[in-house]
């Protein structure tokens, strides 16, 4: 882990330069290794992949997965898809938003379906999928997050 951010971005993106349609895999790799995709990364990425800076920026902002800042220590992604709503997913989402509203270290986001629609309500806690959730269960699983 040496070098400036620019150098590291360049090194990561270069690994994908020979792929067909390298931009998405390269962006995933930058975010995975460096935590987020900085606005300033676009110039480096564009340079390596022979794209315009505007193109790169346009792609980064189109996709919900790409962040422009570090993630919080914990994440809660609650499913608001219809199948989860049929068993209380919307309420779970709203309760989770208010439960963690005052805790800086936790981000609550909505997702639309996690492919666990027979075992809802579903959510990912720190990236791990959980089914048959209730507010109490979320509380138990996130003990010590405050």
């Amino acid at each position: 882990m040496t070098g400036t951010r620019d150098e590291r971005v360049r090194e990561i993106v270069t690994r994908y330069a020979a792929h067909r349609g390298p931009l998405l895999p390269a962006l995933h790799a930058v975010q995975e290794d460096l935590g987020w995709i900085d606005r300033d990364d676009a110039a480096v990425i564009a340079d390596v992949l022979n794209l315009s800076k505007a193109d790169v920026h346009g792609v980064v902002t189109f996709y919900a997965d790409f962040r422009d800042a570090a993630a919080t220590r914990h994440t809660v992604s609650v499913c608001r898809g219809e199948a989860c709503q049929a068993v209380g997913g919307q309420e779970l989402y709203e309760r989770s938003v208010s439960r963690f509203a005052t805790i800086d270290d936790v981000t609550v986001t909505e997702v639309f379906c996690l492919g666990n629609c027979a075992l809802g309500p579903s959510a990912q806690l720190d990236g791990r999928l959980h089914g048959r959730l209730s507010d109490d269960r979320v509380s138990a699983l996130t003990q010590g997050w405050s």
């Binding site: 349609g21 390298p22 931009l23 962006l27 992949l49 189109f62 919900a64 997965d65 790409f66």
Partner: peptide
């Protein structure tokens, strides 16, 4: 990368091409 529309086939192709 978290976009429902990328299930539509031409949108998926755009995404595969890096757009």
């Amino acid at each position: 990368a978290g976009a429902y529309i990328c299930g539509e086939e031409t949108s998926m192709l755009e995404s595969l091409e890096g757009r």
